[in-house]
């Protein structure tokens, strides 16, 4: 232990730890995705969702909004679907 490690202990460089944490989470996802860095099924998932909803309500591709937030333990997928003003089920 030298003088400098003592000085460092007094004031921990917190932002460096944040950098490391962020990288670990990101790279874990990127590596598992074959280096893709994102879930490549999302465009297809989006298409399927649109197709499924269209059976009942007339919506456009652009009315579906897929958001993702990757976390350490789990990731969350947020899907927002904007229904047309006078959206009413086709049948029923």
């Amino acid at each position: 232990m030298n003088l400098f490690s003592f000085v460092r202990k007094q004031r921990p460089p917190q932002s460096a730890q944040t950098a490391k944490d962020r990288l670990q989470i990101l790279l874990a996802h990127e590596r598992s995705g074959g280096g893709a860095g994102k879930a490549d099924y999302l465009p297809m998932l989006q298409r399927d969702i649109v197709a499924a909803i269209r059976k009942y309500v007339p919506i456009e591709e652009k009315d579906v909004d897929v958001r993702m937030e990757r976390g350490e333990q789990m990731s969350s997928l947020e899907i927002n679907i904007e229904l047309p003003q006078a959206a009413s089920p086709k049948a029923g």
């Binding site: 994102k38 999302l42 465009p43």
Partner: peptide, 20 residues
């Protein structure tokens, strides 16, 4: 970085709308 779903090229290639 944790919120990237689609990218610039997805939009150019028509796989996603710009807004998305």
């Amino acid at each position: 970085e944790r919120r990237v779903v689609f990218d610039f090229i997805n939009v150019i290639q028509g796989d996603a709308k710009l807004k998305q």
